[in-house]
Design a protein around this nucleic acid. Structure first.
Lengths: 231, 231
DNA sequence: TTTGAAGATTAGGCTAGCCTAATACCCTGT
DNA sequence: ACAGGGTATTAGGCTAGCCTAATCTTCAAA
């Protein structure tokens, strides 16, 4: 007698999965995802988004407030987290087991995440020892759909003098990631901010080995850090 | 001035990839693949096949003789073999590295083969040591597009008294594969045909360890064997 | 040589997703 | 209080792939 029972979950299409992921990322700081932000993220025209939002709200995956934006319903959030788990497990697996560079995994995972079964993901997770972070330092949702929410601060906004642990690189661009790896700026390294130049200038950091790096603002905004208590 | 140069290979859709694979398999003994055979294999209606055949022959992937059937062009054959390589490498990888049962790999590979990159397939092949056969004993095309063509004979048609090597299991049905594995009927085992009952009855074989198996015709038709010279 | 059944194709329609052009809404600045 | 710009939505169209119903080919049997 109930729609959810009568129609036992028609599988989501690739497009739908992508839209849900976008909405999740765009609302991760709270608030609504706007049509144009989604359109830009998915590289489609805004009317395509409007149309899809209408369909998704009819199937109960999102909440759509016309002219305002959208948010995920609990059901939509569950689906989005499942996709993000798939994506991040895939990235981890490709990096650990198949020698992929952290700059190249995103594109590959982006296509595979729509094709892998739950079973395959869990086997990969198992082979990796249930990793909690992907190669970029992003937290991997659990199979049950829980995700760690850490309060991270951008390197670009860290006060001079502070010591931080570089936790996550919020970027997927292969060229930038390659450069960061060359500079030794990977998740897990400790940094001390020794200076920052004015007018959105670069941040200068000291690495654990005493060497320094000059990090331009564009990059420093992508480096998400956790304050370190010690000294 | 030439279409193949002007438009540098629009990537094939999933559907197209599936049609090409079907045509390859249906023409592997030579001759034409018919509309209804393709329709049955892909579980679509015959008119859908007619329509696709028209498109594929316009793009030069198949040769279509109306009311007769289709064959692959060299270009279509290349694409089909690439898909088959992907499929079989994936099956091998899932079996060897992720603990999949040989009955379960087909479905998983069927979906992944459309999503993996060439690079990923080659990394998997490399990690496996460039395998030549998949878990069912089917030959894996090389990256260059060459495939071994062995002359195999069905167990059901092997003369009583002959000794053979079970080379390939021409089936993907999980239940049948599971049963065959239980019986020890896997690629690589040696068998001697000791009897066959009349009226399409079962074939009785002796295994290397001296035990015997009674193999019904349905299964005996799927067991592809290579004659053994010795004794 | 004709005829009828089987199989192939054409005709016409549907959905998912995308697009552009036209219109509607919202809000801020005057 | 309202005009205008920016954003969202609606209108209308396109392609890939699928479907059913109708029509056409082929071929073998009478």
């Amino acid at each position: 007698m109930n729609a959810a029972i009568r129609s036992p979950q028609p599988p989501l299409t690739r497009s739908v999965e992508d839209y849900l992921k976008s909405v999740f990322h765009l609302t991760s700081q709270g608030g609504f995802a706007t049509t144009s932000d989604i359109a830009e993220m998915l590289e489609v025209a805004p009317p395509s988004v409007s149309g899809m939002m209408k369909r998704l709200s009819e199937t109960g995956l999102i909440e759509h407030v016309p002219y305002r934006g959208v948010q995920l319903t609990p059901q939509g959030r569950r689906a989005a987290l499942q996709m993000i788990r798939r994506h991040r497990i895939l990235e981890s697996y490709l990096t650990s087991k198949l020698g992929y560079d952290w700059g190249d995994v995103h594109v590959e995972a982006e296509r595979l995440e729509h094709a892998v079964s739950e079973k395959l993901i869990e086997r990969m997770a198992d082979a990796l020892g249930e990793p909690r972070y992907d190669p970029h330092g992003a937290p991997i949702p659990t199979a049950a759909g829980e995700i760690e929410e850490a309060e991270l601060v951008r390197l670009a906004e860290t006060a001079v003098g502070r010591s931080v642990m570089l936790q996550e690189v919020g970027d997927e661009n292969p060229a930038r990631l390659h450069y960061l790896a060359e500079q030794g700026l990977r998740p897990g390294v400790e940094l001390t901010v020794v200076d920052r130049q004015p007018f959105n200038g670069p941040t200068i950091v000291r690495m654990a080995d005493g060497t320094t790096r000059v990090v331009g603002q564009e990059l420093a905004l992508l480096l998400l850090c956790r304050p370190v208590d010690g000294a």
